[in-house]
């Protein structure tokens, strides 16, 4: 049975069309965020969500948080980093879960983006730059570093760097690259508890 499962899995991966072009991977990623999160997570490496630092809130934490918001709790002056780093699986679930929020998709709907440059360093490393243009905020750049195993597999986004992000375009920066750091800055700006 294990063999059958492995064969099925191989069949699936053979059927899947690995993205041959780094710019196309970035295009698929940006197009899929929020609306088609499974296609988006397939564009990133397995360790990418871990680096975002996002973690899951338990039901109890969500209920407590709602209570604090109702009571008008102020955001902490200096947001504290999470006590323990998320596990790889928690990071993946978190990265997907953050895209469930309607506000996330609404914010994505208010921006345009354009892939503006691609550079291949070697068979395994490439850099793609995209310009993000929010409707009502300053534009910023997002630099994607992509890798691929053994020089012939599908390209996957491994790291993201953002240039030109400030208070005015924080929400747009978060929805195009959701990380714990940006989430906390956003919570602080919105005046809601970050934890």
């Amino acid at each position: 049975m294990k063999r059958l499962l492995a064969v099925s899995a191989l069949l699936c991966s053979a059927c899947a069309q690995p993205e041959a072009d780094p710019a196309r991977v970035v295009t698929t990623y940006l197009r899929s965020l929020g609306g088609d999160p499974l296609r988006a997570i397939a564009c990133v490496t397995a360790t990418f969500p871990e680096r975002t630092g996002l973690r899951l809130a338990t039901s109890a934490e969500v209920l407590r948080w709602r209570e604090r918001v109702r009571e008008g709790a102020a955001a902490p002056a200096a947001p504290a980093p999470p006590a323990t780093p998320p596990s790889p699986e928690e990071a993946q679930v978190s990265w997907l879960s953050v895209q469930v929020k309607p506000a996330f998709r609404e914010a994505l709907g208010r921006l345009r983006w354009q892939v503006s440059g691609e550079r291949r360093d070697d068979d395994r490393h490439a850099t793609v730059t995209a310009t993000i243009e929010p409707e009502a905020a300053p534009p910023f750049q997002q630099v994607f570093q992509l890798t691929r195993q053994d020089g012939s597999g599908p390209w996957r986004i491994d790291r993201v760097e953002q240039i030109g992000v400030g208070e005015a375009n924080l929400a747009e920066a978060f929805v195009t690259n959701p990380t714990e750091e940006l989430r906390r800055r956003l919570a602080e700006r919105l005046g809601v508890p970050a934890d």
Binding site: L5, A6, S8, A9, L10, C12, S13, A16, G34, G35, D36, P37, L38, I41, A42, E89, Q92, V93, L96, S97, Q99, V100, P102, R105
Partner: peptide, 24 residues
């Protein structure tokens, strides 16, 4: 229905992602 708002949506989805990538 918004993406992954399903019961344990992200958990189920990651199983599909794994098999789609050719691993259990």
């Amino acid at each position: 229905l918004p993406p992954l708002q399903d019961f344990d949506g992200p958990g189920h989805a990651l199983n599909v992602v794994a098999l789609h990538a050719g691993r259990l």
